[in-house]
Amino acid sequence: MKKGLSRRVRDLKPSPTLAVNAKAKALRAKGVDLVNLSAGEPDFDTPEFIKEAACKAIEEGFTRYTPVPGIPELREAIAQKIKAHYGLSYTPDSVLVTSGGKQAIFNAVAALVEEEDEVIILSPYWVSYPPIVEICGGRPVVVNTSEEKGFEPSLSAVAEAVSPRTKMIIINSPSNPTGVVLSPEFLKGVAHLALEHDFYILTDDIYDLIRFDGRAPFNVVSLEPKVMDRTLIVNGVSKTYAMTGWRLGWLVGPEELVKAASRIQSQSTSNACSISQKAALAALLGPQDSLKEMVKVFRRRRDLMVSLLLEIPEISCLVPMGSFYMFPNFSAYYGRQAGGQVIDGSLAMADYLLEEARVACVPGVAFGEDTCIRLSFATSEEEIEKGITRIKEALAKLS
């Protein structure tokens, strides 16, 4: 008898954010007048000097395998960037270049988590954290919070989630989907818990340069250097330099852990794209004007979206301090209906807004918080105005 798929594949769901974005693009390709507020990527073009560096690499024939952990000059540039942003000293041997930030997270979890190990995840969370933990045989332990508490869990709740099987906690600040920047006090508290209970920290800093709070980047290690030997830092060029399709991220941490993650990569994808590595090197070493301008534009768009959302009756929304997402609460409309369709949660709400308003957004249940919907302001002000106006009109039809 033919044997079937593995358990890990049978239980694995596709990424809901990528699925929504693909559906939105497919509808647009058919000529549907759709406003896409689901996108998890900047709508800006990759800066010209970065594209020129890639073209130069191609012209010079830099098209062969590189060392698995990345070309030395890029690893050095990443180490120097972390020194400049966080005041932390790493050698190039503590850097692994990956095919995007997602692979960096996967490699880190795979290198540390064994069967039945527990990984603490703060909700709302990025959709891929729990599945990655499960693929690696671990068990996600979700710590919930709420809009009323600013989507920052209490340290006591995190402490209660710690058990003898806790292997890691995953932190993402600024957050996808909320845009929340976790407070220094909370991060220091997490660091002390890690030291007390002997577990690792994975800090996903992919949005840390897209901030609106006026503060310089900081993370759990820069606030408490004692956890440097038990913390893995994930970042990349995708969000910061509008390079999502280039698939270039990195993992930084204790040399022993990074080398273990590199061994996993050597038996899966090998090196990240050689051309993308040269492009990322240019991004890190070149002028940062495009990044500063992008952040200014995102802030204007954020302010516009917040002001429009707060004009809708019964909608509440925290003002995001980073990333390019907003996570407004739509739950006041749950239980209502239009045309026989009952809105019983965020999934039904997202479907209704796509069909009725022609606005694509992502249901909050995908992030562990069913009361909310994730909206992206990585689109033009014109599209934001059109999209929120359509949402307001569609909600008014519910009774």
Rank of each mutant, 00 (worst) to 15 (best):
M1F: 08
K2E: 07
G4A: 07
S6K: 13
R8Y: 13
V9S: 08
L12G: 11
P16W: 02
K23G: 11
K23I: 13
K23S: 06
K25L: 15
K25C: 03
A29M: 13
D33M: 14
N36M: 09
L37T: 00
S38F: 11
G40P: 10
E41D: 00
D43H: 15
D45R: 12
T46R: 13
A53D: 06
E60Y: 12
G61Y: 11
Y65P: 14
P67K: 02
V68P: 10
P69V: 09
G70E: 00
I71K: 07
A77M: 01
H85Q: 07
G87M: 12
L88H: 08
T91R: 13
T91F: 12
D93A: 06
S94F: 07
G101Q: 04
V113W: 09
I121K: 08
S128M: 05
Y129N: 05
V133C: 02
I135E: 03
V141E: 03
V142Q: 07
S146C: 06
S146R: 12
E147P: 05
K149R: 06
S156T: 11
V162I: 10
V162P: 02
R165V: 05
K167N: 05
I170R: 10
I170V: 06
I170Y: 07
N172H: 15
S175K: 05
P184I: 04
P184V: 00
F186H: 09
G189Y: 15
A191K: 00
A191W: 05
L193C: 09
H197Y: 09
F199T: 01
Y200M: 13
D204E: 10
I206A: 03
Y207T: 06
Y207S: 00
R211F: 01
A216V: 12
P217A: 12
F218C: 04
V220E: 11
L223F: 04
K226Y: 06
V227N: 08
V227P: 12
V237G: 04
T240C: 03
T244S: 08
G245M: 09
R247E: 01
R247A: 05
V252M: 00
E256I: 11
A260E: 15
Q267C: 04
S268W: 15
S270N: 07
S270K: 06
N271H: 14
Q277M: 03
K278P: 08
A283G: 08
A283F: 13
L285A: 09
G286T: 05
S290Y: 07
S290I: 00
V297L: 12
F298L: 09
R300Y: 10
D303F: 13
V306N: 02
L308W: 03
L309T: 10
L310G: 06
L310F: 13
P313V: 13
I315Q: 10
V319I: 10
V319A: 00
M321V: 15
S323P: 07
F327M: 08
N329K: 15
G335H: 09
G335R: 09
G339S: 14
G340H: 02
V342F: 14
G345V: 08
S346W: 05
M349L: 14
E355Q: 10
R358D: 02
A360T: 12
A360C: 09
V365K: 12
R374Q: 15
R374A: 11
E381H: 01
E381V: 15
K386N: 05
K386Y: 10
I391K: 10
E393L: 03
E393I: 04
A394I: 05
L395C: 00
K397P: 01
S399A: 06
